[in-house]
């Protein structure tokens, strides 16, 4: 398989990573179409390994995924290009939106729009909780285990004000010791 020029790889990341809305899953699906199916730069197996390892890499999965795909195609320079191309333009847009909010927050119309959007953010957070839980509710036994982990973490944080790090560590240890399959 012939290695493409770094500029072509970076261009593909820039084009796809910053024109897909809807988060990491959408971007990863679009990158699969481009890198595996259209360009043939990586194999389906490379894609699957990057995809599964990105799930267990700390941080934002899709950025790790882009670094892995970039490394597979063009070495460490490809990894840097993948991570930067995926994040820098969207970071600039996020800063512009935040700046706009700061500059216009005294305006009652902007305030009304932000109030609506803030309510939607709260709804989105609850949806994220549900979407994290849903795959773990397939059988009664699995659901009971999942609800126990979920409730224990929530009560520890909400009721006893335990900070997130020990809760994450305890959840990992409990999951390691109590296998779910």
């Amino acid at each position: 398989m012939e290695k493409p020029a770094l500029a072509r790889v970076a261009n593909a990341f820039l084009r796809i990573g910053n024109t897909t809305f809807g988060g990491g899953d959408t971007t990863q699906a679009a990158l699969q179409r481009e890198f595996v199916d259209r360009q043939g730069w990586i194999t389906q197996e490379d894609y699957a390994i990057a995809f599964s390892l990105a799930r267990i890499t700390p941080g934002t999965n899709v950025v790790a995924f882009c670094a892995a795909i970039g490394a597979r195609v063009a070495g460490w320079r490809g990894a840097v290009a993948g991570a930067l191309a995926e994040t820098v333009p969207s970071a600039a847009i996020a800063v512009a939106i935040t700046w706009g909010y700061e500059a216009w927050r005294g305006n009652p119309w902007v305030h009304a729009a932000i109030a609506g959007a803030a309510a939607a953010v709260a709804g989105m957070m609850f949806a994220s909780v549900w979407l994290l839980l849903r795959p773990h509710l397939r059988s009664m036994r699995q659901a009971l285990r999942a609800m126990l982990f979920f409730a224990a973490a929530f009560i520890a944080a909400w009721e006893f004000r335990v900070t997130p790090l020990p809760i994450i560590g305890a959840a990992a240890l409990a999951g390691f010791l109590w296998k779910d399959e």
Partner: peptide, 18 residues
Amino acid sequence: SAIRGVILGTAGLLLAAS
């Protein structure tokens, strides 16, 4: 299983933060 434990714990934390 450990990773899934972290995901479930994260869901609980996310609810407390939400």
